[in-house]
Write a protein that binds this DNA or RNA. Structure first.
Length: 257
DNA sequence: ATGGTAGCCTTGCTA
């Protein structure tokens, strides 16, 4: 089973490219982030026409996550547990083909001197707690999406310039390592140890043309999912298309039982 | 040279 994740930066603006990628790459599951629309505005007919079911957690203008799958989807969470007052549409989780799969849009956290940064760190702490509870269920799971974290300096084109950014600061990386230290596997890094492997390139300053990117989209696997890991990578092609998202799809494939 | 892009339904915010 192949599971992909893609921050599309507006699903309505990106619909032609989304349909093109679904047709050519044909993943079994595609996790989306930054829909930037409410559930009623999600292009369900077009996605259904492409052969996918969809579960959508939307929000006006900002955030928004979805799970697309060729096989039936059973929702298990529509918010990250731990803060009932948190209305932001950044987490949806479901059972798909015997695997618990979450689509995550982790807070960016910039500017770091504002309340956005502690919100990011608190959100990550909630994610660690929830990952612990999933581990206790002893099921295979995949937590994937836009983590807005560069795990190490080799995941950044200019580590010195980015050192003070919320995507790279030590507290952000420490929270990410707490997830890894629970026993989760960064599937892309596990199979692609070389540097200069990016999933995001800023629209500005010719970052894509110069291949000055960041690796911030991750698929983290529970031990039982990691036992089935076959391959993983990043498909750079859609970043080069006309009217591209600033992110490109990342994916992993798991062996069937 | 201290820049630049994209999407939102805004006239600034978020990334």
């Amino acid at each position: 089973m192949r599971i992909a994740t893609w921050n599309v930066n507006s699903v309505k603006a990106r619909l032609p490219l989304l349909l093109q990628w679904l047709e050519t790459a044909a993943p079994d599951v595609l996790l989306l982030q930054e829909l930037k629309c409410v559930e009623d505005e999600f292009p369900l007919m077009e996605v259904t026409g492409a052969g996918y079911k969809a579960v959508v957690v939307g929000q006006k203008s900002y955030n928004g996550v979805a799970i697309l799958s060729r096989t039936p989807i059973t929702v298990t969470q529509r918010r990250l547990p731990g803060a009932p007052e948190d209305e932001q549409a950044r987490y949806v989780e479901a059972d798909v083909a015997g695997i618990r799969i979450a689509s995550i849009y982790l807070p960016n956290g910039n500017p770091v001197e504002t309340e956005k940064y502690p919100y990011k760190l608190a959100w990550m702490s909630r994610l660690v707690d929830h990952a612990k509870s999933l581990l206790a269920e002893d099921i295979p799971f995949v937590l994937a999406g836009d983590y807005n974290i560069c795990p190490t300096d080799i995941d950044v084109y200019d580590p010195v310039g980015w050192a003070g950014d919320a995507l790279c600061k030590p507290e952000s990386r420490a929270q990410y390592r707490r997830l890894i230290n629970l026993g989760l596997t960064d599937s892309i890094r596990a199979l692609n140890p070389a540097p200069h492997l990016y999933s995001y390139w800023d629209y500005q300053a010719g970052r894509w043309q110069r291949d000055e990117g960041l690796r911030i989209d991750h698929l983290l696997l529970s031990p039982k999912a990691a036992d089935r890991l076959e391959n993983a990578g990043i498909d750079r092609v859609p970043r080069g298309w006309e009217r591209a998202s600033d992110h490109t799809p990342a994916w992993c494939s798991l062996r069937d039982h």
